[in-house]
Simulated scan of single mutants.
Amino acid sequence: MKRSTAISIASGVAVAAIGGIFLYSRATRPPVINKKVPEPAKPVELSRYLGKWYELARHENRFEKGLDAVTAEYALLEDGKISVTNSGTHNWPDGDRSVSEGKAIVADEATNAKLKVSFFGPLYTGDYWVLDHGDDYAWSIVGEPSGRYLWVLSREAVPSSATAQAIMKRVEELGYDRWALRITRQG
């Protein structure tokens, strides 16, 4: 086989592989649950947002499928980026713990409410918008502009029923169907 033919075949295989990954990614995305994602409601003080959060609910997605006892921890790095450590348990409560580590950068320095997060290096980043949060940073609602993903976070693993209901009411006020969310079982 001639070298140019081999290169053409290899290039074709690479293009097909990239195309396949793209199609798989598109086919496995969750449906849109909010066609009119709002802009973040208020600025975020990063120093107050950092730390550990417990996931109360989420719009189910392929990278968290079946996880419970999900937490997210954020810390400021020396270079100004934010470390992100997400973890959760498969086959809760006794299953194995899965951990994913990534980095984030602030994408909107005027409010700090929009971040770009990457768990797979610089080639793939996802939007992370803090759509709203408690004034005391006891809860947070996180989404992104496509309306396909949503996370409801709390500083407490199991907040009071009144607090959880108030947060879910805010989810609805932001245009999301709270009944489309999967409740995350915690400790």
Rank of each mutant, 00 (worst) to 15 (best):
L123D: 06
S146A: 07
Y149D: 01
V130R: 11
H133V: 08
Y124T: 05
G102W: 12
W129D: 03
L123N: 13
P93A: 11
L150P: 02
T111R: 14
D132H: 04
E144G: 12
K103T: 15
V117P: 14
S98D: 13
R148D: 02
Y137H: 15
L150R: 01
K116Y: 04
G147C: 07
Y128Q: 08
W129A: 05
K103C: 09
T111F: 14
D132C: 05
Y137S: 14
I141L: 06
V152P: 09
R148H: 06
V152Q: 12
T111Q: 14
T111I: 15
S146Y: 00
P93K: 12
G121I: 10
G95M: 04
E144I: 08
T111W: 12
A113C: 10
T125D: 02
P145G: 02
S100A: 15
L131E: 01
F120W: 10
L115N: 14
V106F: 11
R148N: 04
I141H: 05
G102H: 08
G121S: 15
G121A: 10
S98T: 13
P93G: 05
D127S: 08
L115K: 08
D136C: 09
R97F: 01
V142R: 00
W129E: 01
D136G: 02
H133I: 08
L150M: 11
V130C: 11
D108P: 09
E109W: 14
A104V: 05
H133L: 04
R148C: 01
S118F: 05
G143S: 01
S140G: 10
E109A: 13
D136H: 01
S146I: 00
L150G: 02
P93S: 14
E109F: 14
D108V: 12
S100Y: 14
V117S: 09
V99T: 04
T125F: 09
I141Y: 09
D136T: 00
F119S: 00
G134P: 13
G143E: 00
T111M: 15
W151G: 00
L131I: 12
A113H: 03
S118Q: 07
L131S: 06
A113N: 04
G102Y: 11
L131N: 01
D136M: 05
G95C: 07
G126Q: 11
W129R: 01
D96Y: 12
